[in-house]
Each structure stands twice: as structure tokens, then as C-alpha cells.
Design a protein around this nucleic acid. Structure first.
Length: 412
DNA sequence: CTCGGCATCCTAT
DNA sequence: CTAACGATAGGATGCCGAG
């Protein structure tokens, strides 16, 4: 059975959403001038998160420091990000998409796949239907999307990446030689900088050249799994289904770039405690416990390191997690100054009951659990930023940025 | 030999 | 001059030691 898949992608999502908000307030349209959404250029977290098309013409790139973007384009208008606005815009746009499709997969905050298979009788003309969806979003919500149409997710996603903004493109299998094979290999989904380098060194520069090599040779170059799957992509092959329900989370993590380098363990500890608090609360909200705790950090030369341990018993208790994190950090940090530090919880379980060590003070453990639950309740009521452990409060001036309430409710 | 644990790398939005 | 300046997640890979 041949499928029919749409990929809907908001054009420069964060920037479009900021622009639409401002236009409603009678302010100038950020999409028509060189502009970007990004962090504070004075801080080292100041990078470009989204840019307008005029900004792109100046060579401004997503992910580069705002300070550098300003050198390329001195009149660049930079606005801070507003995550709550983005969550609202995301909901509205997904609601419209869902109303057209038997099945929708939320792929990220600004992208969905629609499985339109079997809708021939209601929607005889896929391109006309896609145009209707995109025009409705523009009319009702004030921002534009691209829609790609094909027989699988890969081709639909490649198609939505063609000319922007406000466009509908098809990439059916018979169009692959003409529309996809001439593109550079880097344009293929999940083919990043490292794989691009290896391919170019072997003289493979376009997706078509990749598609025409032996699969075995690509696997030798890029590894068994990646090679297999990129060779198939280059040939337009993708059987993955449109998944209407979200997969269960496999882990939770937080990391923070600090304003001042961390040079002592005493500086690191309150940050780590705060991060344990935030990430454990998120995990508890999903009714999970973890069996593996990790600490990660980045030195000034941008080298990342991590250290993890697995636990005999799954836990969701902040202080228990923090004790492991503190130990891990103590064991493994060699004293080099750090610009980033973080905590990750993996090996998630759902088990109600975890066996306790006979020697553990179960009463103390129960008390901590009660405390965590109380804090969680307050957080639910007032948001994560409103509550801070006393031990953190004393140190809060040293923390670069407050850990933010995260984008968990995205994509439900 | 396989398996789990671990550290690191790669890719995505 | 270089590279690279974010937060979060998931998967792959290579190594090591246990059985």
C-alpha cells in the first residue's frame, strides 16, 4: 500500500512567532528586516537561535554567537526568546494540522508529520490540500509554513526544505533524480558534519553519488548502521511509520553554561544540587525512577567529559541523586576551569516498588520523599522558578542562569 | 564469544 | 589565524572486564 505523507515545518519558527506577535501589536515585521532571536551577546550563551531571511543574506547563521552575527550585519535586530509564546504557537498550529489528518506525529516544537494515506476521497488533490492547510495557518495565526509531500517521512521532510517560505513542494520517487540527487550530501537528513567530511574525502559530494555507490562501501565509510540508513535515505527508501503517540522518555538531563568559570568544587555543588532538583522533579512528574546518574561538563577549550554510575536501586529522590552526583564530580574532575556543567538521569524504570537496603534509614528516606513531593506540588502551582532550596538560595548569586522550566509539555 | 557498563561521538531541533 | 561560544534528547561505537 503506497502511503501519502505530509511534513509541515514552520518557517524560521521562533522568529516567525516573535514577528507575528509584534505585528499584532502594531510593531514592525521582523521578517522583513535583518533580525534574529538569540541570547544576550554580552553573555557567552548569546547565540543565534533563529534568523530572518534578510539576516541570512548577510551570512548570519543559526548557532553562531550573536556578537559575530552583529559584525556581519551591524543593523541586525536581536530579540530575546519567549518560550511560553512558542509553546502556545506550537499548540495552535498543530491543532490546525491535526484537523486534516487521520494521524499526526509531533516531531518537534515546530514540525509535524501527517499521514494522509487513504484520504483520496475526501482530499483528491494532495497539493491543493497542503495549500489549504498552509493558507489557513497563515490567515488564522499570522505565520507561514512549508509543506513537503511524498510517500514517506524522509522524502516529505526533504521536500519541505526546498524553497522557503510559504511553499508546498512534492518529492515523489520519480522526482528524486531531478530534485534530490543533485543536492550536496550534507542536505540529507541525519547526515552531519562528520559524515560529510568522510564522504567528501572519498569523492562523494552529492546525494546522487551517494545513492549510486554500493551500500557496503558506504557502511565501510560511515559505520554499519549509519551507512545502511544513509544509503537507503539517498535512494529515497524509508519505512518508518508516522507515530501518533509520543515515545516514553529514555532520560532527563539539564546542563547550564555558567557566567563565571567554575574553579572550585564549592562553586559547583550548589549548581549541581539545583540541577538535581530540577531534573528529578521532571522525572517524578512522569512517574519514573532512574538507575543511572551522570555528571557532564565542558572545559574552556570546549572539550566535554562525563562520568556516570549505575545504582543498585532505582530512585527519584533528589538528595539521593545529588549524593551520587557530588561523588561522581569529586571523583572525576581534575580542577580545570569549567564553562558548563550538567546532570543526566537515565536507565528509567516505572516500578512502583523498589527494594531498600536493610541498612538504609528508611525513615529518613521517607521524609526526603515527602519533602520532594511537597516541593513538586508547589512547583506545579507556581512554576519551577518560584521555589528554591535554602542551600541554593544562599548561593544563587553565583549561578549563571536559573535553570528554566523546560519544554516538557511540548508535543503532547 | 556475548553482554553490560561506560565514555565519547554524532545528529537533530 | 584557528574553532567555537545552547539545551535537550537519542542512537551508535569502541573499549573493557565478567562470565
Amino acid at each position: 500500500m503506497e502511503r501519502l505523507i505530509f511534513h509541515v515545518d514552520v518557517n524560521s519558527a521562533f522568529l516567525s512567532w516573535e514577528a507575528a506577535k509584534r505585528v499584532k501589536q502594531g510593531l514592525p515585521d521582523l521578517r522583513e528586516i535583518p533580525s534574529c532571536v538569540g541570547g544576550d551577546p554580552k553573555k557567552r550563551t548569546g547565540i543565534v537561535v533563529a534568523k530572518s531571511i534578510p539576516a541570512k543574506k548577510y551570512g548570519v547563521k543559526t548557532g553562531e554567537p550573536v556578537a559575530m552575527a552583529l559584525r556581519k550585519c551591524p543593523e541586525l535586530v536581536c530579540v530575546p526568546s519567549d518560550f511560553e509564546l512558542y509553546v502556545r504557537c506550537s499548540r495552535s498550529f498543530k491543532e490546525i494540522c491535526a484537523s486534516y489528518a487521520p494521524a499526526m506525529e509531533s516531531f518537534s516544537i515546530d514540525e509535524v508529520f501527517l499521514d494522509m494515506s487513504g484520504t483520496r476521497l475526501i482530499y483528491p488533490d494532495p497539493v491543493a490540500t497542503a495549500c489549504e492547510i498552509k493558507d489557513r495557518i497563515r490567515r488564522e495565526l499570522g505565520f507561514t509554513v512549508n509543506i513537503g509531500i511524498s510517500v514517506n517521512k524522509l522524502l516529505a521532510k526533504m521536500a519541505s526544505d526546498f524553497e522557503k517560505p510559504d511553499r508546498v513542494h512534492t518529492l515523489f520517487p520519480e522526482e528524486i533524480p531531478e530534485k534530490m540527487w543533485p543536492l550536496p550530501v550534507r542536505d540529507l537528513l541525519s547526515l552531519g558534519a562528520a559524515s560529510e567530511k568522510k564522504l567528501i574525502q572519498s569523492g562523494i559530494r552529492t546525494i546522487g553519488e551517494l545513492a549510486h555507490k554500493e551500500e557496503r562501501e558506504i557502511q565501510r565509510l560511515l559505520g554499519e548502521k549509519a551507512g545502511h540508513h544513509l544509503w537507503r535515505y539517498a535512494n529515497g527508501i524509508d519505512d518508518s511509520p508516522v507515530k501518533a503517540q509520543r515515545d516514553e522518555a529514555k532520560g532527563f538531563s539539564v546542563e547550564t553554561t555558567v557566567e563565571e568559570d567554575i574553579v572550585t568544587e564549592e562553586q559547583a555543588q550548589p549548581i549541581l544540587l539545583s540541577q538535581c532538583d530540577v531534573v528529578a522533579a521532571r522525572m517524578r512528574r512522569e512517574g519514573k525512577k532512574c538507575t543511572c546518574v551522570a555528571v557532564t561538563w565542558r572545559t574552556l577549550d570546549f572539550k566535554n567529559r562525563s562520568h556516570q554510575c549505575s545504582l543498585g536501586n532505582a530512585t527519584d529522590v533528589t538528595d539521593e541523586i545529588y549524593r551520587h552526583v557530588r561523588k561522581l564530580f569529586h571523583e572525576s574532575w581534575n580542577g580545570q576551569p569549567l564553562r558548563l556543567i550538567g546532570v543526566a538521569l537515565t536507565g528509567l524504570t516505572e516500578e512502583e516498588y523498589t527494594q531498600m537496603s536493610l541498612f538504609e534509614d528508611t525513615e529518613a528516606r521517607e521524609r526526603r520523599k515527602k519533602m520532594d513531593e511537597a516541593l513538586d506540588t508547589i512547583r506545579r502551582k507556581y512554576g519551577n522558578d518560584k521555589i528554591t532550596r535554602a542551600s541554593i538560595m544562599n548561593m544563587s548569586s553565583r549561578i549563571g542562569r536559573k535553570a528554566k522550566a523546560q519544554m516538557n509539555d511540548e508535543g503532547e
